[in-house]
Amino acid sequence: MPATDFRAILRILSRHGAQFVVVGGVGAVLHGAPIHTFDLDIVHQRTGANIEAILAALRDLNARYRLQPERNLHPDTEHLLSPGHHLLITDHGPVDLLGSIAPGYGYDDLLPKSVTLSIEDGLDVQILGLSAIIESKEAAGSDKDRAVLPVLRRTLDELPPK
């Protein structure tokens, strides 16, 4: 039976020095929103060096595209240079590798809106700020994204002031 191991995915990415920002549901959970999600969404820095680091991590994760799994397709440099979304399944669960979450919202745009959270010793990750996660879901406008907005907004209200 497949199992998700978000920590393992983050550890492997970190071990390879990959630069990325956690967004989406896991990001919201890390901020304290009691919502549910099955996949890890990350926005990666689209530089040559970082894409090589990401690809090395994806090889360790045995990452392949979720669509048409029978073809066992793996992302390559050209894929990850694009701003598009790469929906992957790994040995530790599903990962969505996003070149951007919207036009003009790539890694360099999101990093100033992110915070560093310590998951465990030796594992610090960049998480998109909860305000920005809310903005991204408002911009996405899908029923799925709108459904969690009340909880995210209320969680933001409950966070202690910085």
Binding site: R7, V29, T37, S118, E120
Partner: peptide, 8 residues
């Protein structure tokens, strides 16, 4: 944060 991730 780690506990939240583990709970999920």
């Amino acid at each position: 944060p780690a506990q939240r991730l583990d709970y999920l």
